Simulated scan of single mutants.
Amino acid sequence: MILVSGAAGFIGFHLTTALVAAGETVVGIDNLNDYYPPELKWARLAAAGIDQRTVEESGTARSSRFPNYHFFRLGLEDGPGVARLFEQFSFTAVCNLAAQAGVRYSLTNPQAYVDSNVTGFVNVLEQCRQHRVGHLVYASSSSVYGLNAKVPFAETDDVSQPASLYAATKRSNELLAHVYSHLYGLPTTGLRFFTVYGPWGRPDMAYSLFSDAILAGRPIQVFNQGAMSRDFTYVDDIVGGLVRVLLQPRPESSGVPSRIYNIGKGQPVNLLRFIELLEEQLGVKAEKIFTGMQPGDVEKTFADTSALERDYAYRATTGLETGIAAFVDWYRNYYQPHQGADAGAK
């Protein structure tokens, strides 16, 4: 049995459905907060067969699509609630995806990041320790590389200069996991995600904001005068890597059972090229306003994924054109029938 936190989130939704479709028994949890409109989170849950009314009335529901999927409304900050969940179920593995996301939001709401990303993560670590969970896999982020100028980013690079509070909390997760692995022998694996995109994506991500503005005829802001590049990674490739790490045997090694891997496409793309492909799929040219770098942002991300390829035979295969087409198809089907072309990721 596998616990997935953040199950109503972007990656969490895709992971839970992939796991249960593969026959795994999954318990998913999410606090369904309003960092972005909860309607999207409820829609993801509905797509996975979880009934909103049942959850609102009882705090839990079993999927009508997947009998092996059980969802609970629960936040990681709720220490006693997390403890009760671990008492109720015997988890063989835990995948911690729940976190307060977003770099820019952390500039104005730091406490939310400490509560969810630090306190919440410690609650998970402590329960995994007490209940002798076989493997904790957790989401880290490419943002931990911060002001590092060397590319591609490798797991052995210095990560002592985070550029945002969000990045600092993700690095703290890696350090805390290492401590629990060292002190208690808890096997932990952190995956540093690189710019994940695709259907059901968060509305605060650039590609959703761009799509909303372009279809509504509003200009889009292009930061750092467009001189930015990202290692865009399609969500199915991320989920494929997560499933491998969760279900395959861990590579043999001596010492502390704590590992960290990059997971990304390994092919950075200039932001203007990404916008160009988005315009092609949307069938509309964007009006661009070029501006300076946002606080907390970095100019480039680029993943060296050789370690994950070596240990888990992982390689991202989805091309950017294919991934953007899939996102735009979902975006039109989800937003436009209900809200019109000039509404979307608000």
Rank of each mutant, 00 (worst) to 15 (best):
L45W: 10
R132Q: 12
F89T: 02
Q111S: 13
F91C: 03
E77T: 15
K41I: 10
P110D: 04
N96V: 04
A46E: 09
A154I: 12
D78T: 06
V144E: 00
A154F: 08
N123Q: 10
Y145M: 00
A149R: 06
A112Y: 05
T119R: 12
A61C: 10
T92W: 08
Q111H: 14
F72S: 02
Q52L: 12
S141F: 06
R84I: 06
Q52H: 12
V82K: 00
H70C: 05
N117C: 10
A48G: 11
G81N: 05
T156M: 14
G134D: 03
R132F: 13
F89P: 00
R132M: 09
G102N: 04
G49Y: 14
P80D: 11
V137G: 01
G59V: 14
S116V: 09
P110L: 08
G146Q: 00
Y145T: 00
G81T: 09
G49N: 06
Q88C: 08
N96T: 04
L136V: 07
G59W: 14
Q100G: 05
A61G: 05
Q127R: 05
K150C: 13
A154Y: 07
R84D: 11
R44T: 11
A48F: 13
F72D: 01
R53A: 14
S63D: 04
V124W: 01
Q100D: 05
L136D: 02
T156L: 15
C95F: 13
A101R: 05
C128Y: 02
G49L: 15
V159S: 14
Q52R: 12
G134R: 04
T54Q: 10
Y69I: 04
N96Q: 11
A43M: 09
L85P: 03
D157P: 02
N109L: 14
L107M: 09
R84K: 13
S64C: 08
N68V: 08
F66M: 04
F72L: 12
T54M: 13
A99V: 07
R129G: 09
E87N: 14
L136E: 02
L97N: 00
A61V: 09
Y145H: 03
Q127W: 10
V133E: 00
N109D: 14
L74P: 01
S106K: 06
C128T: 03
Q100I: 08
H70V: 07
L74H: 03
S63P: 06
K41L: 08
S141A: 07
A83C: 12
L136Q: 00
R65H: 14
A83R: 11
